[in-house]
Design a protein around this nucleic acid. Structure first.
Length: 484
RNA sequence: GCGGGAUUGAUCUAGUGGUUAUGAUACUGGCUUCCCAAGCCAGCUGCGCGGGUUCGAAUCCCGCAUCCCGCACCA
């Protein structure tokens, strides 16, 4: 399915839709998850906990979304997370100042150049607006962080632009109390906020969005002492670097494409996780970033990208952040961030997996939504453990006590599964409705049920049915829906 | 943020100044129906927001917002 079809599907079925849509002053870049979307998201998060957090014995925290100014002085966001912009006095066109000058003068403008120097360059070379030849105003700064005021005096603070800052500022306490050793991974799911200039494409570019971030704290001198790497050494990594694809077992990438075992290990875990999300892994790649593409804190970076109808989409940023964050926080807060690793006293380095949840959910939908022309149906062929609804309970006809029997079954399982009871419309119509929201199973109660207490279970993808004892339904669903 | 296009029920859509705004799908209730979008009856939802022109605006004009395309932006 393509992007437009997924958007329409999401609106119709209640996966997600624009926030505040009944008001005309609703702002772009904010979307709500509806009933089906929340159910999908919750299951995605549970899979993430299962396949990453618990599997790798990570620690999960949940931090505040509002953080103090000092955090972002230390993190570099106050200084770096903004762009110098100039505005045309005449026609109000806005340009990114440093790039505009580079394009016009063919010179390199260093990132650290201050606003006055940029102003002088503009005046000296009489740079004018491309569109109307009007004069340009003074440089101003647009910071992508949402600044907010705390309390009656509106003390300066910010909505976090990435969840990981919580992990960095909490690190030393967690390390001291949790009795863990390096490498130690701390994970968090939560909202982040970025004041994008022009958000577009629904869940793909939001001003308020969910991240699942994993920060692996490690000793830079032991990046190849990773015993658990053995468990994933045969996992195939798809790496795009130097202009071509490399499809190799994890162990074959070490020292060539991937600098060490620790990074390769987590790239492998990530690959396995997304495979279990039902994303077509043959349409994914880890793209090794060139120096000019990397974030200001990264030394090695891979983007995990997936092919969609709108092109390659970045789902996860994997950055080796070295000791940038902890050292900066140590300097600004004057709290020591050193820990003992064996006999070494070090400031840990950090390897980060920064997942975009909203984009991941979008991709799962796009890769799972199928137009089944043969059976005239739209089917969400999503993994059963991610399905927003697990099972529909349907009386074949709405009389003869079948409805009563069906309701009893529904009451019996509704606390253990996401189940819906549906008696309205023909049986075929009800199957179609369940197919559309990806319910992997439909249970039908018919006359035979009244005689021998058996029911039929219909499978979404094959449309095949089998008859089982009604009192075995719970076991049946448990084995078929559980995480594999 | 700039330029262009668009905005009519949940979804798609007809409607270029004049009765009560069109149709389809979907949805709801009922009848029928023992297994895959059948049929019949009944029903619920709508002109993005604000201002102007006009006797009269979904329709013309202006502003704002959102969506789409391109540019720019994307730590």
């Amino acid at each position: 399915m393509n992007y437009d079809a997924v958007i329409k599907f999401a609106l119709e079925e209640g996966f997600y839709y624009p926030s505040c849509e009944i008001y005309s002053d609703a702002q772009a870049g904010f979307w709500d998850y509806g009933p089906r979307g929340v159910s999908l998201k919750n299951k995605f998060v549970e899979l993430w906990r299962r396949e990453l957090v618990r599997r790798d014995e990570m620690i999960e925290i949940d931090g505040s979304q509002i953080m103090s100014k000092s955090v972002f002085i230390a993190s570099g966001h106050i200084e770096n997370f903004n762009d110098p912009i100039v505005k045309c006095i005449k026609c109000s066109s806005i340009y990114r100042a440093d790039r505009y000058i580079m394009d016009h003068l063919n010179i390199l403008v260093p990132e650290r150049m201050n606003d006055k120097e940029i102003d002088q360059l503009i005046i000296k070379h009489n740079i004018r607006c491309d569109k109307c030849k009007g004069e340009l105003g003074n440089v101003s700064r647009f910071n992508m962080m949402f600044r907010i005021g705390i309390g009656p005096n509106a003390e300066e603070a910010y909505l976090r632009p990435e969840t990981c800052q919580t992990i960095f500022v909490d690190f030393i306490r967690i390390y001291k109390i949790m009795r863990k050793r390096l490498p130690l991974a701390i994970a968090q799911i939560g909202k982040s906020f970025r004041n994008e200039i022009a958000p577009r494409q629904s869940l793909l570019r939001l001003r308020e969005f969910y991240q699942a971030e994993i920060e692996v704290f490690c000793n830079p001198n032991h990046l190849n002492d990773i015993e658990k790497f053995e468990k994933v050494k045969d996992t195939v990594l798809r790496i795009y670097a130097n202009g071509k694809m490399h499809i190799l077992k994890a162990e074959e990438t070490i020292n060539t494409l991937v600098p060490n075992k620790l990074i390769a290990y987590y790239l492998a875990l990530l690959t396995q996780f997304y495979e279990r999300c039902g994303i077509d892994i043959n349409r994914t790649r880890f793209r090794k970033l060139e120096d000019d593409e990397k974030a200001f804190y990264a030394t090695t970076a891979f983007d995990f990208e997936v092919e969609t109808s709108v092109g390659w989409l970045e789902l996860v940023a994997c950055n080796y952040r070295s000791d940038y964050d902890l050292s900066r926080h140590e300097k600004v807060s004057r709290e020591s961030m050193s820990v003992m690793d064996g006999n070494e006293k070090i400031i840990p380095h950090v390897f980060e997996l920064s997942m975009g949840i909203d984009r991941s959910l979008y991709t799962i939908l796009e890769h799972s939504l199928i137009e089944d022309k043969e059976h005239e149906r739209r089917v969400l062929k999503i993994r059963s453990y991610l399905a927003p609804v697990h099972v529909g309970i349907l009386p074949l006809v709405n009389k003869d006590g079948l409805d009563v029997y069906a309701l009893k079954i529904f009451e019996d399982i509704k606390k253990d599964f996401d189940a819906i009871y549906d008696f309205s419309g023909s049986i075929g119509r009800r199957y179609r409705r369940l197919d559309e929201i990806g319910a992997p199973f439909a249970v039908t109660i018919d006359n035979k049920t009244l005689e021998d207490n058996t029911i039929t279970v219909r499978e979404r993808d094959s449309m095949k049915q089998e008859r089982i004892a009604a009192d075995k339904l719970k076991d049946y669903l448990l084995t078929r829906i559980r995480f594999e």
